[in-house]
């Protein structure tokens, strides 16, 4: 069992990522919904083990972008390369990328007809072709890690929102992805449950997972992110290291956004 998260143990919060490999490369990615341009020449590179937080007002195209990276949406122009695989219409490439990239949704999207354990083991068994006992022990280890092993035999409907989102994270991790995408993972949660999910994400980041996170949790961004990307109107307005981004943003629009949100 090769586990991408064991690659390197991080020592400090400030990491030297300059020599790390590029795992996500977007070059001038554009996307239209009908006449409406949702992404406008988005270019960004994300390095291995990097944690990038994407900020921006509602409707700025954050979800659209992050969903293009595992091909839940199709981009129409530009290039997206994930782990050296370019996303085209080729089904095999899409399958390869999807098994490398885990995704966590705002609405959890757990499978309500399956137990928690089955939710986590389904894909490893049928997509990764793992024997069931192995998949189950791995799933139990993951549930242990997100702190809810005792719920394994329950159904999603019997869990709180925070617990469901942690199961969703475990489900994504069970595929042993190299990259994790989070689309507003805490936006559908009651305030008292946000922390338990953010804590899990924090430990995941510390373990060296490459992460791309859309969130409005500024505390999380400041503490965990290596880099911030600010989007508006389908464009990347500004991207910078966390410290620089908060202490002296260059763009007017970023300043305005920060003044509203902080």
């Amino acid at each position: 069992m090769t586990d991408p998260t064991t690659a390197e143990t991080p020592t400090e919060t400030i990491r030297d990522l300059s020599k790390a490999r590029d795992v996500i490369v977007c070059e001038n990615v554009s996307k239209w919904y009908g006449d409406f341009q949702a992404l406008d020449r988005v270019s960004a590179t994300i390095k291995e083990q990097e944690v990038v937080v994407v900020l921006g007002p509602s409707g700025s195209g954050k979800s659209t972008w992050i969903r293009c990276i595992n091909r839940l949406e199709q981009h129409q122009e530009g290039r997206i390369v994930v782990d050296d695989v370019e996303l085209t219409n080729d089904l095999r490439n899409i399958e390869k990328v999807r098994s490398e990239v885990g995704m966590v949704f705002q609405q959890f999207n757990l499978f309500p007809h399956l137990t928690i354990l089955d939710n986590v083991t389904l894909a490893p068994i049928w997509v990764r072709k793992k024997p069931r006992p192995e998949a189950e022990s791995q799933a139990m280890a993951l549930l242990e890690r997100v702190g809810i092993p005792e719920q394994a035999q329950k159904y999603p409907g019997q869990l709180s929102g925070g617990q469901q989102q942690r199961v969703a994270i475990a489900r994504a991790l069970a595929m042993e992805p190299r990259i994790m995408l989070f689309d507003e993972p805490t936006s559908a949660l009651d305030p008292e449950m946000i922390k338990e999910v953010l804590d899990v994400m924090k430990t995941l980041a510390e373990s060296g997972m490459t992460m791309m996170v859309v969130t409005h949790e500024m505390g999380f961004a400041k503490e965990v992110a290596d880099r911030l990307i600010f989007m508006e109107g389908g464009q990347i307005v500004e991207q910078n290291s966390t410290e620089e981004f908060f202490s002296n943003p260059t763009e007017e629009r970023t300043k305005l956004f920060l003044s509203q949100i902080l």
Binding site: Q138, S160, E196, S207
Partner: peptide
């Protein structure tokens, strides 16, 4: 699979458990 810091996990378990489960 190892990788997540175990001390962090236990803190999650202790602090993050909603009262409904106890």
């Amino acid at each position: 699979m190892t990788g997540l810091d175990s001390s962090n996990v236990s803190s999650t378990t202790a602090g993050g458990q909603p009262p409904a489960a106890t």
